[in-house]
Amino acid sequence: MKIEKVTLDHQEFFSLAEKYGSVFFTRRWLAMYPSSCLEIFMILDDNNQIAGGFFHYKINLLFLRCFFLPPYTPHNGFFLIPRKESITKKYSFEKKVHTLIADFYRQKRFSLVSLALPDFCTDTQPYYWNNFKVIPHYTYVISLKKTEEEIFADFSSGRRYDIRKALKDGITVNQTKDMTLVMELVKKTFSRRNKKLNEFRLTKILNEYSLPENSFAFVASWKEVPVAAAFCIHYRNRAYYLLGGYDSSHKHAGAGACCLWEAIRHARSLGLEYFDFEGSMIPEVEAFFRDFGGKLIPVYTFNRAVVWIEIILKFIRRNTF
Score class of each variant (00 low, 15 high):
Ala51Met: 12
Lys133Ser: 13
Arg265Met: 08
Leu206Asp: 02
Tyr235Ile: 07
Ile297Asp: 02
His234Arg: 04
Ser111Tyr: 11
Arg238Gly: 02
Asp46Glu: 15
Pro298Thr: 07
Glu85Val: 14
Val182Thr: 04
Leu61Cys: 08
Thr7Glu: 08
Ile151Cys: 12
Asn214Arg: 11
Glu213Val: 14
Leu272Pro: 05
Tyr241Gln: 01
Glu184Ser: 15
Asn237Gly: 03
Arg27His: 01
Pro82Arg: 12
Asp154Phe: 06
Leu117Trp: 09
His234Ser: 01
Thr73Tyr: 15
Leu197Val: 01
Leu167Ala: 15
Asn60Leu: 03
Phe63Ser: 11
Arg192His: 12
Gln125Pro: 05
Arg201Lys: 09
His56Tyr: 13
Ala305Cys: 06
Glu286Met: 11
Asp162Ala: 10
Lys2Arg: 13
Ser221Arg: 12
Lys95Phe: 08
Arg65Asn: 07
Ser156Trp: 10
Ala217Asp: 03
Pro226Ile: 09
Glu85Met: 14
Leu206Thr: 02
Ile50Asp: 01
Ile81His: 08
Trp29Cys: 01
Thr189Trp: 03
Glu278Val: 04
Thr73Glu: 11
Val141Glu: 12
Asn319Trp: 09
Glu284Gly: 00
Ile59His: 14
Leu243Gln: 08
Ile50Pro: 07
Leu69Phe: 07
Lys195Gly: 01
Val225Pro: 01
Gln49Leu: 08
Trp129Pro: 00
Val285Ala: 00
Lys145Trp: 05
Asp45Arg: 05
Tyr241Ser: 00
Arg268Cys: 01
Tyr240Ala: 00
Pro136Asp: 05
Gly294Asp: 05
Thr88Leu: 04
Phe79Val: 10
Lys195Arg: 11
Asn131Val: 08
Phe54Ala: 02
Ser143Pro: 12
Gly254Lys: 12
Leu243Phe: 14
Val173Glu: 13
Asp162Gln: 13
Met281Ala: 05
Asn198Ala: 01
Thr122Ala: 06
Leu117Gly: 03
Thr176Trp: 06
Ala228Glu: 03
Phe14Tyr: 04
Leu272His: 09
Glu199Gly: 14
Arg265Lys: 13
Ile205Met: 05
Ala305Val: 03
Asn198Leu: 02
Asp276Glu: 07
Ile50Glu: 00
Glu262Asn: 09
Phe13Gly: 02
Met183Thr: 03
Asn47Glu: 08
Gly244His: 14
Leu38Trp: 04
Ala305Tyr: 03
Ile87Asp: 10
Ser114Gly: 07
Ile43Arg: 03
Ile101Thr: 06
Ser157Leu: 13
Asp162Glu: 14
Ala116Thr: 13
Pro126Gly: 10
Phe302Glu: 01
Leu8Thr: 04
Lys89Glu: 15
Tyr57Gln: 05
Thr147Gly: 10
Asn130Met: 13
Ile135Ala: 05
Lys195His: 08
Glu94His: 11
Asp46Val: 15
Leu144His: 07
Leu197Gly: 14
Ala153Gln: 13
Leu112Arg: 04
Met281Arg: 01
Leu80Ser: 10
Phe218Ala: 00
Gly256Tyr: 15
Phe68Arg: 15
Lys108Val: 00
Ser210Tyr: 04
Ile163His: 04
Leu16Cys: 04
Ala116Asn: 11
Leu61Asp: 04
Gly21Asp: 05
Pro226His: 01
Lys165Phe: 02
Val182Ser: 07
Leu8Asp: 00
Phe120Met: 05
His234Asn: 06
Phe104Arg: 14
Glu199Met: 11
Tyr57Pro: 06
Ser248Gln: 11
Leu185Met: 02
Pro283Leu: 00
Phe200His: 07
